[in-house]
Design a protein around this nucleic acid. Structure first.
Lengths: 354, 354
DNA sequence: ACGCATATTGTGCTCGAGAACGCAGTAAAG
DNA sequence: CTTTACTGCGTTCTCGAGCACAATATGCGT
């Protein structure tokens, strides 16, 4: 009744050869005469043959293994969401022969990353997904993987020069510009603004610096000279962290703070709330539990959503599609820069997007 | 080498029965003795059997047909994006045996919908997806479909009482609240606000009215009595439309306009720009080409993205997954309420989310 | 105990692509 | 003139679930 799809068998029949020959032509593995080749090609040009992905996948049904190399989810709500994404991908792809293993490293310890990376490498998986937060260490890891032709997908932090199969994440520079835009919104009279990096290892975090550049770029391009932008980097685990933060917040001319990390956002919000400074505009990152209440109470004005869960989920999906269905992954899957407010927060929490 | 997945065959072996029996137990189509049933169940409880979706799909590889019933994409940029989503789904699901047909009706003509709906019904597809913009006509259509057990998916406009397989779209009420929030942002001194419905058939468009309710609710809940909210419904094809619109816009106390339709947004923006009234805050819907330039020029302050393309795409996906893979579709797939600004616009245009 | 009906169970083919295998034919090497 | 090597090509089996049908087993009546 329905116009059934064309099968290799059909092509073979039309070309007057056997399906083995068609198979050889399609995958050009030689051993085909000029004549047969031509016959098959003629047929191929006339009809558009789409191989049945399901059949193909079934026959070559092997068990693929993927290793996800992540910072400790127990240490950080951001990475916890990443892990959720991985687990969701695991259950979604579980039906196919996909083995998914998670290896955890310490996000503050390069050695730990090196160790786990080596462990991952030793297991010779069919694919690897990781957030390469240590630049140099990641570099040599990827060199190894490239040599062994193990595809790798990056998320969160991009290192374009290592040519990953795919990068999934945000455009940090533009993310910073969005932050600036939200800062400027209805607050045009100028004043002091702070860009706050709360991270243990700012040198290594290119994407945080890119956010700052984007933030500055916005004001520069608009020629808004009445705003003074001050960059401050603090390490939450360092001595005197509280004092430093308090000093910053007590500046009466401070109009707004742009926090470049998700974890830092709630830290700053807590301080602001404690000191009753709700007038300072606060913009930060991500829908973490800690951030939610401050957004709801109005201490945090906006969040920019990096969607770590979705990043991880899509990373696995791209990799799995590549391995199982031979689909080609996008070189860069840059997420939209989602602005979260009090009113649209719930819609993000409830939506089934992943 | 790898812990191969458990196959029906394995279960049969473990339970000491044949794979036919296991098959009967799994799909409980009776004709199995108590004893065999127990043996199989015991094994099933010990191991978690996940049927190989690929194999299943291959064997029962029939051609599914889906009909998408849409308003004319040539008439309206919004529905054009919907169509894009359908086409994208078509190419993505083309590998599987999915036949996707689009039927177009006139969005201003109920009779046209009835006609096309009947045509769709006559073709006895395996599934239908549609945007039920005519309430009564849709109702009787779905009654028919239900009787024939043809699954249907709704998008854009929900009619919960017809129990669709799935609804994909926005929560209109909260969408209005987000509109209100964006209106209030940095504009606290009160004044006159307009909620503008530009549509040919407002009576029939529940979701537009819901947006208005949400909009009003925000100000009510916040007890912002200094704002006066005025509702205006205009039909773009009616005589005197221009005059009516101009009269509204020339009100000097008007502080902001919330347009409930995507098409209406650019119409209002054009008028505002022509009259040099950039100070009136304008909030509308969707990333349509016509809207883009006004958002970029600043006449439109914010867009709320309903993502028609993604709605259509996911609608088909849910339906296809239901038919082909027997996956159960979410009853409601409510999208996040995406806020589009000058700075994050490009990230939305470029992102590969679909 | 036998025939027949029904209940239960097992076998074997299907889907479509991939790939191993093997056969026939031919050319080069011994 | 045989042996080996290699080409070209067709056949056949594989993957795992689904399903039709064949093959048993059980029960009941005579």
């Amino acid at each position: 009744m329905n116009p059934k799809n064309i099968r290799i068998k059909d092509i073979a029949r039309l070309a007057g050869v056997s399906k083995g020959t068609v198979d050889r032509v399609l995958h050009n593995r030689g051993r085909v005469s000029q004549e047969s080749f031509q016959k098959v090609m003629t047929v191929m040009e006339e009809i558009d043959y789409k191989p049945n992905l399901i059949a193909r996948t079934l026959s070559s049904s092997r068990n693929y293994s993927i290793i996800a190399l992540l910072p400790d989810p127990a240490e950080d709500a951001y990475w916890a969401q990443t892990k959720e994404g991985i687990l969701q991908a695991k259950s979604e792809w579980g039906h196919y022969n996909l083995n998914l293993e998670i290896l955890i490293f310490d996000q503050y310890n390069k050695e730990s990353f090196k160790e786990k990376a080596q462990e991952a490498f030793r297991k010779k998986p069919d694919g690897i997904i990781t957030a390469p937060i240590f630049y140099d260490e990641a570099l040599s890891f990827f060199k190894l993987l490239k040599k062994e032709e193990i595809p790798y997908v990056l998320f969160n932090t991009n290192i374009p020069e290592v040519n990953p199969l795919s990068f999934i994440g945000q455009d940090s520079f533009n993310s910073g510009k969005v932050g600036a835009e939200l800062m400027y919104l209805g607050q045009h009279e100028g004043g002091k603004l702070a860009v706050l990096h709360l991270d243990e290892d700012i040198q290594n975090s290119v994407h945080l610096l890119e956010k700052e550049s984007g933030f500055r770029e916005y004001f520069k391009k608009k020629n808004l000279l009445t705003f003074e932008i001050q960059e401050i980097s603090l390490k939450p685990n360092e001595d005197g962290f509280e004092d430093n933060l308090n000093r910053l917040l007590s500046d009466p001319s401070l109009r707004g703070i742009f926090v470049s990390t998700s974890k830092g956002t709630s830290v700053v919000a807590a301080h602001l709330e404690k000191n009753g400074k709700k007038k300072i505009r606060l913009i930060g990152y991500d829908i973490l539990d800690d951030n939610l209440k401050y957004l709801r109470s109005g201490t945090i004005d906006f969040l920019i959503n990096q969607n770590p869960k979705r990043q991880a989920f899509l990373g696995i999906s791209h990799l799995a599609n590549h391995l199982i269905f031979k689909k080609q992954a996008p070189e860069r899957d840059l997420f939209p820069l989602e602005v979260i407010t009090q009113q649209n927060l719930d819609s993000y929490l409830k939506s089934c997007i992943h």
